[in-house]
Write a protein that binds this DNA or RNA. Structure first.
Length: 447
DNA sequence: TCTGGGGTCCTAGGACCC
DNA sequence: TCTGGGGTCCTAGGACCC
């Protein structure tokens, strides 16, 4: 591994670049309000059920990390400034970030708002060296966005991402040490570099898989390098075993994919006070239907599958889905299906989260437009076409009713009404829904 | 310590068709 | 009449990523 010349790699040694903005949301907040500079800042939900989405390095000095429950973050850092997050602003910065990288090469794949991969192979002909390109990129991002970032260069996505992580500032013992800024993984040293990493460093290995691997005595990537795929498959499944074996060898064939279209859209909300009545659940589904429908229409998509998820107070969750023979984007239609699905969930506990998702997108054809009841989107036409529309609309409504009948038939209606037994203070809590993107807000302190 | 909201992918079982 | 096996679609749950 090296971070600077004379080990200048060619494009063939380092065709893949990964950039990751440092403490992105928190950094944008500090840029917009310089009085925050030097303070421990987090963006996230401040309430009892909130989590930290982004933490400034100053906050990290106190052990605050993204994904951490805000309650714990505040315990570690009582002076932590927790801001609610302004996604429009982050999206604006994210777009400018992407534009800068796209100036380098059009082959760019965004991973969330704050990181992306780029394929540098197009630079070969121009004689641009990857490390020079990486430093130039950092400089532009610094000059034009006033944001810091880490850049990784490698033969594939696996190493490029590990490298950009390695390039970043680190916090050790409450002290911030600045990073190299740009890191290149020399192909000759790849395998031994990988061998030293814990299994959890690999893409796709989270807490559950790491625990399984630990139980098998596999703690380091070098352990994975020594175990055969079939043994692995028996414990983590065929696909995961194949991926892990390949990654452990340093083998990652994933391409940089431009414009990976979304396969689902959805919306969910964790409530400050869990829902206890079916009416509250229905209300949440209807509210979500409006958001999801708007998103579908904005993306000009029609979805055939509607899914409802309920998460209970013990953090277990259940889902119900229904696939229609046609696509919908209409708020009323999505709400009707969503409510019918939600009514099949037995409310044995209070519900802390309700989610509503739409997937299985279909092409928007003339036919589908009418099926979706968006009669307004069509220009006023001949009476004949108006009649046809009306007829199609009727068919669509019938299809919807069929789908709802099917839901009820599949699950029966026995679950209805079980909620009444749940608790005494059912009704008044519905209004206490949080508005925060990262979890419900804390109620205002008295006085 | 106790876990948000945006998503993706995998698995396993059942239904259905050939 | 009873049977098999493969393919595809759908559903539910779980894990993961940022």
């Amino acid at each position: 591994m090296s971070s600077s010349p004379p080990d200048q790699p060619t494009v063939d040694d380092a065709p893949i670049l990964h950039v990751d903005l440092d403490a992105f949301f928190a950094s944008v907040e500090i840029l917009d309000d310089p009085s925050l500079r030097g303070l421990p800042v987090a963006v996230g939900g401040a309430g009892e059920r909130g989590v930290v989405a982004s933490a400034s390095y100053e906050a990290r000095r106190f052990g605050v990390r993204s994904g951490m429950a805000s309650v714990l973050a505040r315990r570690r850092c009582p002076n932590l400034v927790i801001l609610p997050g302004r996604f429009d602003r982050y999206e604006e910065y994210s777009r400018r970030f992407r534009d800068i990288v796209t100036d380098l090469t059009p082959t760019v794949e965004a991973i969330g708002l704050d990181e992306l991969f780029a394929d540098l192979r197009g630079l070969r002909r121009l004689g641009v060296r990857p490390i020079d390109a990486a430093w130039a990129l950092r400089e532009r991002i610094e000059n034009e966005l006033r944001l810091d970032c880490g850049v990784g260069l490698a033969r594939n996505k696996l190493f490029a991402k590990l490298a950009s992580k390695r390039s970043k500032p680190i916090v050790v013992g409450g002290r911030i040490t600045s990073g190299a800024g740009v890191v290149w993984v020399d192909p000759v040293l790849e395998r031994e570099w990988l061998a030293e990493l814990p299994v959890g460093a690999l893409w796709g290995v989270g807490p559950a898989t790491a625990a399984k691997l630990h139980r098998l005595g596999l703690r380091w990537v070098r352990d994975l390098q020594a175990v055969d795929e079939a043994t692995l498959a028996a414990h983590v499944g065929a696909a995961m075993a194949a991926t892990l074996s390949a990654y452990a060898r340093g083998d990652d064939r994933r391409e940089v994919v431009v414009d990976r279209g979304a396969k689902s859209v959805g919306h969910d909300e964790t409530f400050l006070r869990s829902l206890r009545t079916l009416d509250e659940v229905r209300g949440a589904v209807r509210t979500h239907a409006s958001v999801v429908s708007r998103a579908l229409r904005a993306n000009r998509q029609l979805a055939r599958t509607v899914t409802v998820v309920a998460r209970f107070d013990d953090l277990t969750s259940v889902s119900r889905s229904q696939t229609l023979p046609f696509g919908v984007d209409d708020e009323g239609a999505i709400a009707m299906i969503g409510v019918a699905l939600a009514e099949t969930v037995e409310l044995t506990q209070s519900v802390r989260l309700i989610g509503l998702y739409a997937s299985s997108f279909v092409e928007r054809s003339e036919h589908e437009i009418q099926m979706s009841f968006n009669v307004d989107v069509e220009p006023t036409g001949a009476r004949e076409s108006a009649e046809a529309r009306s007829r199609e609309r009727q068919i669509g409504l019938e299809g919807l009713r069929d789908a709802i009948d099917e839901v009820r038939q599949r699950f029966g209606r026995s679950s209805l009404g079980t909620l009444a037994d749940l608790g005494e203070h059912g009704l008044h809590v519905a209004t206490q829904r949080g508005r925060n993107a990262f979890g419900p807000e804390q109620p205002a302190p008295p006085g």
